[in-house]
């Protein structure tokens, strides 16, 4: 199944998906846990001014995120979520790794259902995956808004 989909997303997202899909359900959860530990710290300008980040309403945990498009058209994704919300941190870390270095056009072309293709529905549940989906939707909207200005 992974092969059928590997062409539709940029390389890093495809690799992350393949990594998840080759694991058992229990190990997929542990991989998500690893991601949660690797969520990058916010740069100082966001850490000192969290209001610059947008609350992701679709997540149960208080996660905040913001996506910037730089002058070269490259997307930068920043997110913070508390340690008590490892699932949400994991979702954010997947996006942070996958989005790194992508152009705005590549981000807008990402399929909205990417979070549901990671094979996490059984281990994490559909309800919780909606949080990651919400993060991705908001990321794309923020990119669109910045391209328009």
């Amino acid at each position: 199944m992974a092969d059928d989909r590997s062409v539709d997303v940029p390389e890093t997202f495809a690799r992350i998906r393949a990594d998840f899909l080759e694991l058992s359900q229990a190990d997929r959860l542990l991989l998500l846990l690893e991601f949660s530990r690797e969520l990058p710290e916010l740069p100082e300008r966001f850490a000192s001014a969290p209001e610059l980040l947008e609350r992701v309403e679709e997540c149960q945990a208080p996660v905040r995120a913001f996506t910037e498009v730089d002058e070269a058209g490259i997307v930068h994704f920043y997110a913070s979520a508390p340690p008590e919300a490892p699932t949400t941190r994991g979702f954010a870390a997947i996006l942070a790794e996958g989005l790194a270095g992508l152009t705005a056009e590549q981000v807008l072309a990402l399929p909205d259902d990417y979070p549901f293709t990671l094979g996490l529905t059984e281990a994490v549940s559909l309800l919780r995956l909606r949080g990651m989906s919400g993060m991705l939707t908001r990321t794309k909207r923020q990119v669109r808004e910045q391209l328009a200005t």
């Binding site: 959860l29 949660s36 008590e84 919300a85 490892p86 699932t87 949400t88 994991g90």
Partner: peptide
């Protein structure tokens, strides 16, 4: 827990 991974932390 509410968070499915919290136990693992």
């Amino acid at each position: 827990d509410e968070d499915v991974l919290l136990y693992e932390t």
